[in-house]
Design a binder for these strands. Structure first.
Length: 481
RNA sequence: CUGGGUGUGGCGCAGAUGGUAGCGCGCUACCUUGGGGUGGUAGAGGCCGUGGGUUCAAGUCCCGUCACUCAGACCA
């Protein structure tokens, strides 16, 4: 990255200070603004438009897999939250409480939902009575609140937007299948729409969701070598059903507990996009979620015919379904170039008198910095090909290459320490015996924690990286956001 | 939560030893501008995060508090 020409002076270079670079992008690309409440941010129109695109794609996928949207209340009575022991223990330290209504103290305090399992369970207990009522495949798009200590825009805020799917099934097999199906929906979305490679796997016992039988996750590697959990999918078995008294009558007229799942993705994905694709000129957005996919910058726009031609191109691209913007403001072309690079727009089209004479224009590709000269007759075709094929593939490959370069296979803890010291933070692949004590010891000695047990296993050795006893799994380890 | 740093026009900063605020960018108007933040002229805009204290006098000193930030611990 160091060789990248830095065209915008307003942001800190990512090599110099990655954390500051990240914050600069959030502010300068007009994605967020702080408020006077710690950890609560304004998601500005440009940032929110990215989220809306994420929602649009994911929601369509949820519907296509048979899910319905619902909306639960924001408040959970304390007694309801406490019904499942592990769940309340996991979340209690970070919930916000409502204690008063107006000036009256409440009989029972209410927590602001940190997640809605308990609300869904209460509801399912009311509406599920027969095997004919199953399954229920519900999802909701809401915000939740977790009183985090350390906050960062998108990555960890006290209130954040997300979707949470909650499903309930007659059999364990069906529920397990659902858990896997949704993990795959997430992984496909990340790889195809966000151009971000992910590792699919299972969380270790110590790292799973509070109250779950098993938790699955997709893990991505950011540019600075830190891991980011991009989505999770949980299998609950019938534990919640038992705690909340959800029962139905099966075909044999027996009363049984159903099996449940939940799965979620959050505005953290925007942070993932920033840290996966961004560079020293600013944000780089995948075409699928970019609010503006192509921006037209007229050059010498006061000259005869330039704006007419620019408008013509605008109309052509718009008709072809491209999210296109024409900037005919008084700012200089150079100012516009820098501005739209900062905002990560995938394609920029420059059109000036010289181009018009030759029936061509210049097309600049954000992620690679390439500039192409394109005939005006082929502009729509070229832009579509860039947005749909060339750019997504190029961005994915670039991110994958970065991840590959920062993934180290190790067979003992000294190797881990050496690899991290010499090559910087990254994913460590290493064998594990399955004991929590070793998991803790690896973290203590090397600084990397277990991220997941990937579905795609490799036999790096037959011994645990820590204790040397027979290994059960290969695990991805890393420092996490 | 622990430890460090920071809060002064919209943004970025300067304001030894206390004396009542200054610069660059941006903004407004006009002019200029052909391909990487074009150049010029004139103008508007801040009581210094917030609450208290010391003092004749506080952006400057003291205490509290809130927010931002970095490192750690924690985090479905």
């Amino acid at each position: 990255m160091a060789k990248d020409k830095k065209l915008v002076s307003e942001i800190t270079s990512m090599d110099e200070d990655f954390a500051q670079w990240y914050t600069d992008i959030c502010k300068k690309a007009e994605l967020v603004e702080y408020t006077s409440v710690k950890g609560c941010m304004v998601i500005r129109p440009y940032g929110y438009a990215i989220w809306e695109n994420i929602q649009k794609i994911l929601d369509a996928e949820f519907k296509a897999t048979g899910h319905e949207n619902v909306c639960m209340p924001m408040f959970i009575p304390e007694s309801l939250l406490q019904k499942e022991k592990d769940h309340v223990e996991g979340f209690a330290p970070e919930v916000a409480w409502v204690t008063h209504g107006g000036t009256e103290k409440l009989e029972e305090r209410l927590c602001v939902r940190p997640t809605s399992e308990t609300l869904f369970c209460e509801h399912y207990a009311n509406i599920v009575h027969s095997y004919r009522d199953l399954p229920k495949l519900y999802n909701q798009w809401v915000s939740v609140v977790r009183w985090e200590k350390t906050t960062r825009p998108f990555l960890r805020s006290r209130e954040f937007l997300w979707q949470e799917g909650h499903t309930i099934h007659a059999t364990a097999e069906e529920a397990v299948e659902e858990t896997e199906r949704m993990l795959n929906v997430y992984a496909d979305f990340c790889e195809n729409s966000l151009c971000m490679p992910v590792v699919k796997g299972k969380k270790t016992e110590s790292d799973k969701f509070a109250g779950a039988v098993s938790t699955y996750a997709i893990e991505a590697l950011m540019h600075d070598g830190k891991a980011l959990q991009a989505g999770t999918s949980h299998y609950f078995g019938d534990g919640f059903a038992k705690a909340f008294g959800i029962e139905y009558t099966d075909k044999e007229n027996k009363r049984v507990n159903p099996h449940q799942t939940s799965w979620g993705m959050t505005t953290r994905l925007i942070g993932a996009v920033i840290m996966t694709h961004g560079d020293n000129s600013g944000l780089v957005l995948p075409p699928a979620v970019a609010p503006v996919q192509a921006v037209i910058v007229p050059v010498a726009q006061h000259k005869e015919g330039v704006l007419d031609k620019a408008n013509e191109l605008y109309a052509q691209l718009k008709n072809a379904g491209v999210r296109v913007k024409l900037d005919d403001s008084e700012n200089s072309p150079g100012w516009k170039f820098a501005e739209y690079e900062m905002k990560g727009m995938p394609v920029r089209i420059e059109i000036g008198p010289r181009d018009i004479e030759q029936n061509q224009c210049v097309v600049a590709v954000r992620y690679s910095g390439e500039k192409l000269t394109v005939s005006l007759d082929k502009l729509v075709e070229t832009v579509n090909d860039l947005l749909e094929n060339v750019i997504p593939k190029g961005m994915f490959d670039k991110a994958l290459q970065n991840r590959t370069e920062k993934t180290y296979a190790c067979t003992n803890t000294d190797e881990i320490i050496t690899a991290l010291n010499e090559k910087g933070d990254g994913f460590v692949k290493a064998m594990w015996c399955g004991e929590e004590a070793c998991e803790d010891e690896v973290k203590e000695k090397t600084g990397v924690g277990s991220r997941c047990i990937p579905f795609e296993q490799e036999q790096l050795s037959d011994k645990c990286v820590c204790c040397g006893k027979p290994a059960k799994h290969m695990v991805y380890w890393g420092k996490a956001y």
